[in-house]
Simulated assay, not measured.
Amino acid sequence: MAHTHSHNTPDGNHTRLAAAFGITALFMLVEAIGGWISGSLALLADAGHMLTDTAALLMALLAVQFSRRKPNARHTFGLLRLTTLAAFVNAIALLVITVMIVWEALRRFYQPQPVAGGLMLTIGVAGLLANLLSFWLLHHGSEEKNLNVRAAALHVLGDLLGSVGAIVAAVIIMFTGWTPIDPILSLLVSLLVVRSAWSLLRESLHELLEGAPGHINVDKLKRELTLNIAEVRNVHHVHLWQVGEKPVLTLHVQVIPPYDHDALLVRIHRYLHQHYQIAHATVQMEYQPCSGPDCELCFDSGSTQHDPHHHAGHVHQHH
C-alpha cells in the first residue's frame, strides 16, 4: 500500500478574503435594517442574496484557516469538512428565508405597503459600491487560481444584479409611486437566491455523501493510467472523494512485476498528481488478478483478507 501526501502553504488571499467578507457582511446588515425601516421587500431580498455571498466568503476564509491546522490522531484530515457542513446548513437556511420573502411578496400584491424610495435608493447605491469593492478585491485574488476566491467572486458578481435592481425599483417608486415594483423585484432576487442556495445545497450534500469531485472522471482516470504506464494492466476498486478542496483517492492496480517496485509507485503517484492534481493517493499494487472481499465493498464481512500473492509497498511523497 503506497501513500502520498500534500501540505499546502498558507494562502496569500487571506487578507483579501477577510476584507471582502467584512465589507459584504456589513452591507448585508445595512440592507436588512434599511429594508425593514423603508418597508422595501426588495432590499430585504437583496440582503438575503448578500447573505449567500457572506456565507461563501466565510466558507472560503474558513477553508484557508482550517487548511493551516495540522491533522491529528482524532481528525486525520484536519477540520476542512467543517466548511462543507457549514455550507449545507447555510443552504437550507437560505431556502427557508427565500420562502418567507416570496410569501411576503405575494401578500403585498394584495395589501400594498408604503415604501420610502429615497432611503431605498441610498442603500441600493451603497450596496452597489460595496459589491464593486468586494469584487475588485476578489478579482485580484483570483489571479492566484484559488478556487474558493473565484467562487466567492462569482457570488459577489451575481449580487451586483440585486443592487442594480434595487436602485431601479427605488427610482420607479420615487417618480411614479408604483409600489408593486418592490415585491416584483423581490421575487426576481429570490430566484437568484434559490439558484445560489440550491447549487450550494447540492454541492455540499454531494461532498458530505463522499461523492467523487465533479471535475474528475473516474473511468477516464482508470483508462488513462492503464494506457500511459506500461506496467499497469488493470485499475480497479477505485474510491474517490473530496475533503475541502483536496481530492483523495484509493485504488488497486494490477501490474507486471516491476524491476524496481518503488520507482513504479513513484511514477503512478506522479501521474495522478500531474494529470489529476491528486496529491493524496493510496495505491495497492497487485501481481495477480484481484479476488476476494477486499476488491469490493462488502458490508457483511467482518474483516477483509488479502490474497497471499498480492504485494503492497509503502512510499511517502511531498509535492
Score class of each variant (00 low, 15 high):
L205Q: 03
L51T: 14
E143H: 14
G162L: 02
D300T: 14
R74D: 13
N131G: 10
R270D: 09
A60E: 01
D219Q: 13
A18H: 03
F135E: 03
Y259C: 09
S142F: 06
E296T: 11
G124R: 06
M59A: 08
A312H: 15
R150M: 09
A25F: 11
T24G: 10
A73P: 03
H140K: 14
K246Q: 15
V232C: 01
L192H: 04
P10K: 00
D159M: 05
N72Q: 06
G292Q: 01
S190G: 13
Q65G: 08
I167D: 14
H139W: 11
E143F: 13
I173W: 06
H269E: 12
L137T: 05
V99S: 14
V171Y: 06
A153M: 12
L272A: 08
I184M: 13
I278P: 05
Q254S: 10
D300C: 07
V30K: 11
P183M: 06
L51K: 06
D46Y: 05
N13W: 05
L82S: 13
A152T: 06
S38D: 06
L251C: 08
L297I: 09
L201N: 05
N217H: 10
V266Q: 12
H206G: 05
H314E: 13
G78W: 00
V266I: 14
N13F: 06
R69H: 13
L201E: 05
G39M: 08
M50L: 15
M28N: 01
F109H: 03
E286F: 04
L249E: 01
I172R: 02
H316K: 00
E144F: 11
A60L: 10
T179M: 11
Q284I: 09
L137Q: 05
P213L: 05
